[in-house]
């Protein structure tokens, strides 16, 4: 039995990856307590209305009920994943400035340099924990998925053991939703 986890910092494309896996035919677990909004027009694809980390911290999240299913646990939750289980983690990466811009828009307040550093450290910590615990994981760059969805989804599919319907999964990627793009000065 495996628990498939989609992780990464918030606003790094975790919801997009959940949609890709859902379209690709995987069993994806989420509830609809948190409604789609302007920040995630297609929804958040989370359990516990997005508060799964609290349940993991308390040790009350029933991970065994999600065997062979995909769930979303963002970066801060990685250190609370129950031990003695097998996980396969798809860890999303995105340009940190774009993440900060997206979070700022969502919170309605410009995040500081110190916030950026803190989230960068969290990202490093989450990846370090995955390595140290010997958890199977793959990193996927959000920007690469938007630019070249088929190649990236094929890579994810290989990691998952070929279970995805790639043709269908590719349709989940909508470049129009690629907002908060970092401006490149020419």
């Amino acid at each position: 039995m495996v628990n498939y986890i989609v992780s990464g910092l918030e606003r790094s494309g975790t919801s997009m990856m959940m949609q890709i896996l859902l379209k690709g035919g995987m069993k994806v677990a989420y509830d609809t307590k948190r409604k789609p909004d302007e920040h995630n027009p297609r929804g958040y694809f989370e359990l516990e209305g997005g508060k799964i980390i609290n349940r993991l911290m308390e040790g009350t999240f029933p991970m065994e009920q999600y065997d062979d299913m995909v769930i979303k646990v963002t970066a801060y939750g990685i250190k609370y994943l129950p031990k003695n289980r097998r996980y396969k983690v798809i860890y999303m990466l995105r340009d940190l400035d774009e993440i900060m811009a997206s979070m700022s828009k969502m919170i309605g307040e410009k995040l500081s340099k110190e916030d950026r550093i803190a989230f960068e450290h969290l990202n490093n910590l989450a990846l370090k924990i995955l390595k140290e615990r010997g958890i199977e994981y793959i990193t996927v760059n959000y920007n690469d998925v938007v630019k070249n969805p088929r190649a990236e989804i094929e890579r994810v599919n290989e990691f998952l053991g070929g279970v995805l319907d790639v043709d269908s999964a590719v349709k989940a990627v909508d470049p129009k939703l690629y907002r908060n793009r970092k401006e490149v000065k020419k």
Binding site: E10, R34, G50, K51, I53, N54, T74, Y76, M103, M106, I107, E109, L111, D115, A118, F119, L122
Partner: peptide, 11 residues
């Protein structure tokens, strides 16, 4: 991070 995650609705 925790303060920001609360504001974002993740904690």
């Amino acid at each position: 991070v925790k303060e920001r995650l609360r504001a974002l609705g993740y904690l």
